[in-house]
């Protein structure tokens, strides 16, 4: 159970929770039809949106969840291993944790991406990633940057081995909704 790496903001995942929604889904289904990531996000936005007043919460909730769901699917190791998604509501915030397996060779890459979110200026990092994309038209990697700099989403990344020695990452995020 070694090699645990935790990066990011401190987020209370359990205190004063008013309601919870849990689900699991197969990455395979998203790869089969990418629009399903959006369908899941729209569902979560529909489910929780009515708790919040004003400011078009549906569009914001769906946009944020879509980015984190797409990210989890892209970084997953086994397309047949379920991704777990938990959403909790506390006052004017939604807190979510998405847990997926992670291939060993991509852990280093993902850890670096996460560290950059906290060590770099996000505006400069965004511009750099886009300029780099001129050379490498396949890579993007701006989703998490946009979540932090445009949506002020708090994030926490917990890389750990489970009891079956599989690499996992639990991404917890918190968004404030007026």
């Amino acid at each position: 159970m070694g090699n645990r790496v935790v990066i990011g903001d401190s987020i209370d995942f359990n205190g004063d929770i008013e309601t919870t929604l849990s689900m699991s889904f197969l990455p395979l289904d998203i790869f089969d039809n990418w629009a399903r990531a959006g369908s899941l996000s729209d569902f979560i936005a529909e489910y929780f949106g009515s708790y919040f007043e004003g400011g078009s919460p549906h569009n914001i909730i769906s946009t944020v969840f879509n980015e984190f769901i797409e990210n989890a699917v892209k970084f997953t190791k086994n397309n047949s291993q379920p991704i777990l998604l938990v959403v909790k509501k506390r006052k004017n915030t939604l807190i979510s944790r998405i847990t997926n397996t992670l291939p060993v060779h991509r852990k280093t890459e993902f850890v670096r991406v996460c560290k950059d979110l906290y060590n770099e200026d996000l505006e400069e990092l965004f511009l750099k990633k886009i300029e780099d994309g001129v050379e490498d038209k396949r890579k993007s990697g701006i989703g998490l940057i946009l979540m932090k700099k445009d949506y002020q989403v708090m994030t926490n990344f917990d890389f750990y081995e489970d009891s079956k020695s599989r690499n996992n990452v639990a991404v917890t995020f918190k968004m404030d909704l007026e």
Binding site: T63, E70, V134
Partner: peptide, 17 residues
């Protein structure tokens, strides 16, 4: 345009460049 994901923002950014 109701939604645009980060891959779309990235692609449009390349067009802007």
């Amino acid at each position: 345009l109701i939604f645009l994901n980060s891959s779309g923002i990235s692609s449009l950014s390349l067009f802007i460049l």
